[in-house]
Write a protein that binds this DNA or RNA. Sequence first.
DNA 1: GGCAATATGAAATAATAATTCCAATCCATA
DNA 2: TATGGATTGGAATTATTATTTCATATTGCC
Lengths: 281, 281
Amino acid sequence: MDERVPRDFETLRTTILERRHSLPKRIAQIAAYALDNPDDIAFGTAASIAASAGVQPSTLIRFAQQLGFDGFTSLQLVFRERLRERNSSYDERLAALRAKAEEGAGHRAIFDGFVAAASTSLNDISGRLNEDHFEDAIALLAKAETIYVLAKRRSYPVASYIAYALGKLKIRNQLIESAAGLNAEMISFASPRDAVIAISFSPYAPAAIEEARVISEQGVPIVAITDSSFSPLAQFAKVWFEVAEADFAGFRSLSATMALAMALTVAVGEKRRDEGRKRKA
Amino acid sequence: MDERVPRDFETLRTTILERRHSLPKRIAQIAAYALDNPDDIAFGTAASIAASAGVQPSTLIRFAQQLGFDGFTSLQLVFRERLRERNSSYDERLAALRAKAEEGAGHRAIFDGFVAAASTSLNDISGRLNEDHFEDAIALLAKAETIYVLAKRRSYPVASYIAYALGKLKIRNQLIESAAGLNAEMISFASPRDAVIAISFSPYAPAAIEEARVISEQGVPIVAITDSSFSPLAQFAKVWFEVAEADFAGFRSLSATMALAMALTVAVGEKRRDEGRKRKA
DNA sequence: GGCAATATGAAATAATAATTCCAATCCATA
DNA sequence: TATGGATTGGAATTATTATTTCATATTGCC
């Protein structure tokens, strides 16, 4: 292999863009395809890539050779390396933020720590959400007459947001608060035609668990957001989501829970609208 | 291939972890290696992976088959798919998420949209926070006798979280709620030795603005979190933060506001503790 | 401790994929 | 428009890689 073969993706990219106009038609075609679909180059076979790009496999090899590689395989390595490095760079960035926060230089570090925790949590839930459970929860909530929202202490802000959003979407809902001490009565109105969104994380607020138990015994289906399958909430729930929030300075993030709550709420709103339309038609 | 073969990485991961203890030694060995070095599985050949993990290629294939795949190749696809999705740089990934959300394929897209909005907001505020303002706000709040927390509607969840966290840190605070209709009286107790955290975004809740006006006229210093310098809150505030939250489906994220609120709260707690210690010394 | 079932190692084989080669085509230039 | 060089398509070849097979070893059980 030549001495000045592009070893990293960025150099390769630049090289391709420079030579773009002096390349033969088919080679230019595969060059454009490569820059547009780098992932395909990284994972595909010569044949599959050639087919997607509308050229012959041999053209792909000629392209690689023009750039100084000794074949398609060596070119592909650069595209693969890119995926490896890019991937770690994000994690590294987060780790840096977190490290800066942990070495504890002043108040800025506190802020960085919370941003890092929130990002981590979002990142995590994004890959973890079980789509089937999500659909089940939406279906369950969409057909409820009234949606009860149950959460105490740290989770209460999420509940209050859900209540706000449901209100904006004109979906009947009832936040189970403790202010007036009338929770027991409020709960007794719930029927199996209603549904509950319950949120609680370890250490589980006893009141939340107790209310969830009572309401589930009345036959009201519960959608739970909690932190593990050992959660007492999980056993009362028809559907439950596991959300692992990162923490900083002993305060856990709420970002993932919040995102899930927003998505649930809006999805329920959308499903109701769709079904309302169907019923009319 | 079996019907319930894990086809996404997370499911696969869970499945492996579940069966971990019932797997034969060498299979368990490759299983552990796979979870520790997912990138190697994605890129390597059966032979190279087997060598790195210290097993025979055939063991790798047996491992794949135990999981229900029909061979190493199908197992590898899952690991590759993961890299495609965890794709590239943070920004690109966000863009991908947002694009997926915008093309609007079902409920999953809604979830992706909210995660993307939250991530964007966090990313944004991370670079934007004015450190001097942050220090000023902390100083101001740390010396307050009582911290009043003022927010309505969409911002209310943030306020309720702040109140919860301040409580946990044993910092005297008062959430200005509308429930009992006694806000005016509550506000009249505030003195210049106290402080206010006020949060409001366009469209500003009239009650929040009005209460902020009254309380500032009483000489109580206000720390505001809002969305622009044109915000009516900004003019009443001693210190104010501009937070630009991304939105999805008409619902704006709260993640950046939340992170800032948490950081403020904890930083105030820390400053008070430090000063308490100094005073004793 | 012996037997059967299960697991493992190593090499043979089958499958798949990359590369090469050559004929056909295209294109610029005279 | 004829000619030579460059480019391209497609099949043949070679290389690489996954998979299968079978002999051997290990483990659990009576």
